[in-house]
Design a protein around this nucleic acid. Structure first.
Length: 183
DNA sequence: CAGTGGATGCTCT
DNA sequence: GAGCATCCACTGT
C-alpha cells in the first residue's frame, strides 16, 4: 500500500494487514494516527529532535521510541519526507512465531502477547535497532489486507493532549485489541 | 472488574 | 526537573 499518504488515510488501511519481523507476527488489529498538527504527537509542529528524527523520513520507514523508560513502541512512518506523520501499532493478532512470542513475553495467553504497543514490540523483538529502517525489506514484511474488513474507531489511549480526537482504529470484534472499542 | 501506584530512562524545557 | 503514545501487581468490590 501507499505509505506516503497521510497517517489518517494509512491507519485504517493497516487494520487487517499483516506484519512480520523476522517471520514473527500476525494481523494488525489496532493502530493510532499521529500527524504534525497534533499536540499529542512527537512530531508536533514538525519540530525535529534526536528522538523523532525517523518521523521525518518518507512514508514506509519505521519509528521506534522508548516509552516510560521500559517499553519500546513501533510506528509506521507515513506521508512525505520532511513531514512528521506516523501510525502507532497498538495490537496484533499473533499468527506466526507464537512460540517465540511466548518465550519473549514469558506468557502463555495468546490474547495478551501483542495487546498493547509495548507488548507488541516485546513479542516481535522490536527495539531501537529497528528505528529508521525501511519496512519493505527484511527483517520486516508488511502484507496488504484483503479489502473487506470492518473497521471501528474511537479516541486514542494513554494521552492527555488532544485526547478527544477519534484516531484509534481497530478490527471490529477482535479479541486481540489492547482495550475494547465502545459500541 | 475498577482503581491505584511503582518501575524505569530518556527527552525536552 | 517534569512528564511521558506503558505495563504489571495489587487492592477492594
Amino acid at each position: 500500500m501507499d505509505l506516503t499518504r497521510s497517517p489518517h488515510d494509512v491507519a485504517p488501511d493497516l487494520i487487517g494487514s499483516e506484519l512480520y519481523v523476522d517471520g514473527v507476527g500476525g494481523v494488525i488489529v489496532e493502530v493510532e494516527a499521529y500527524d504534525h498538527e497534533d499536540p499529542a504527537a512527537h512530531g508536533y509542529g514538525n519540530r525535529r529532535t534526536e528522538r523523532n528524527a525517523s518521523m521525518f523520513l518518507p512514508g514506509g520507514h519505521v519509528y521506534v521510541y522508548r516509552s516510560y523508560g521500559i517499553h519500546w513502541c513501533m510506528n509506521v512512518v507515513c506521508g512525505e519526507e520532511g513531514v512528521a506523520g506516523a501510525v502507532l501499532l497498538r495490537a496484533l493478532q499473533p499468527t506466526r512465531g507464537v512460540a517465540e512470542m511466548r518465550a519473549r513475553r514469558g506468557l502463555d495467553d495468546v490474547r495478551l502477547l501483542c495487546a498493547g504497543p509495548g507488548r507488541l514490540c516485546q513479542a516481535l523483538g522490536v527495539t531501537r535497532e529497528h528505528d529508521g529502517l525501511p519496512l519493505d525489506r527484511p527483517p520486516f514484511l508488511l502484507k496488504d489486507r484483503v479489502p473487506e474488513v470492518e473497521i471501528v474507531r474511537g479516541p486514542r489511549i494513554g494521552i492527555t493532549k488532544a485526547a478527544d480526537r477519534p484516531w484509534r482504529y481497530g478490527l471490529r470484534g477482535s479479541r486481540f485489541v489492547s482495550r475494547p472499542f465502545r459500541a
